[in-house]
Design a protein around this nucleic acid. Structure first.
Lengths: 205, 205
DNA sequence: AGAATATATGTAGATTTGCTCATATATTGA
DNA sequence: TCAATATATGAGCAAATCTACATATATTCT
């Protein structure tokens, strides 16, 4: 398995188009393999093979196997980031009700397309070790902003942080839950609506 | 890394006390090593060494390295299960308010003692692959029961499932968040109280 | 006490995996 | 055109996982 943090092996960053294609091919191959054979039997050589590149190319852009997983998470977080950002802008002037509604629906939509992948990302693929920029942290800022321009009774920053903290975790966890863990007999639409209700109940409390 | 599902290597299950001690020693050693040197540099030989048992003993109870991780998760889930169960019994006759309060505080208490471990379990140690009995699924039943004997307006099972689904994910995610991801400037006590407020706001909605 | 069973040891090695490196090819820029 | 730079290759090494197994000790049962 992974060695003990060898002397900082700096890797090349892709700058030409084919390099970026190589990187993408590696990430896509990793996903395809995980879905097909499970996370446990993922090997770097096999990833390279399925990606159609040589093992050497993989290690030009990823310092180690872990880095592939981190990149997978980053790719996902960036996608969600874009979706949330767009939703915030689109509903900049809307009420809190419709904003929350829009964000929750956007989150659910973003995940329902490929639930298998997000299940893997959530429960199998190890997250990054250093504490930088996990998903909740990045959502927090967005919600803080959205709440600050709306909540009349939220006077100071501490209140804002408190509210944003709860809302962030509710949205993240409940949207994932609605897609991946909702009880049988509860449709995705019903679950989504209930998530919205829960968040708004808290914000109106 | 793990092989491709070799011919079902059935392992011994501990029945004597010293066997259980061996198993525990292995799990404890894995945790100690992860904290000390990170998940990435965990090796089975080193685990055996730190546990004070031979590598042969390790493989008598764990079919492969992954099984050690799975056992780590199971151990944690069982601990939380016991705590939740005890809290439910202790407050069987209490109001919904005090029950939720008690459960949230119990969850936070259970995690605040060793946040480093739970951070590892959440983000580094891969979860089990088969979908059996994850934490949320098990909490769901408990909350369903607790709500059924209290919520006056919850008529049928669908409503119950809906409510229990939301509450389960809120409690799990927000308690973890309060311990591991609360914004600086928000004390653990404040965060915990806010979690309770959020859950109750939803249940009273 | 003595047989049956469960547990522990640890070396030797086969197999697998992560990752390196010397070398070759493609692209860019002047 | 041709040097400089970026990208791609893949055999092979070091290290890890996991097995096999002969041996020794501890526990349980009658």
């Amino acid at each position: 398995m992974t060695k003990k943090a060898k002397s900082n092996p700096v890797r090349r960053r892709p700058q030409q188009r084919r390099a970026r294609q190589t990187v993408d091919a590696v990430l896509d191959a990793a996903v395809r393999l995980m879905k097909r054979e499970g996370f446990g039997s993922l090997t770097t050589n096999r990833i390279a093979e399925v990606a159609g590149v040589s093992i050497g190319s993989v290690y030009q852009y990823f310092p180690d196997k872990r880095a592939i997983f981190i990149a997978l998470h980053e790719r996902h977080v960036e996608q969600i980031d874009r979706i949330i950002g767009a939703t915030l802008i689109e509903h900049a002037a809307a009420s809190l009700d419709t904003l929350i509604h829009a964000i929750v629906e956007a989150m659910v939509d973003a995940h329902k397309g490929d639930p298998e992948l997000y299940e893997l990302l959530m429960h199998e693929v190890p997250h990054r070790a250093d504490g930088t920029a996990d998903f909740a942290t990045r959502l927090h800022g967005a919600f803080r902003l959205a709440l600050s321009s709306r909540g009349g009774e939220l006077k100071n920053g501490r209140d804002l942080d408190r509210r944003a903290f709860i809302v962030t975790h509710m949205v993240e966890s409940l949207c994932h839950g609605a897609v991946l863990r909702r009880p049988s007999g509860l449709s995705l639409r019903e679950a989504t609506e209930e998530v919205v209700r829960a968040v708004l109940a808290y914000l109106r409390e």
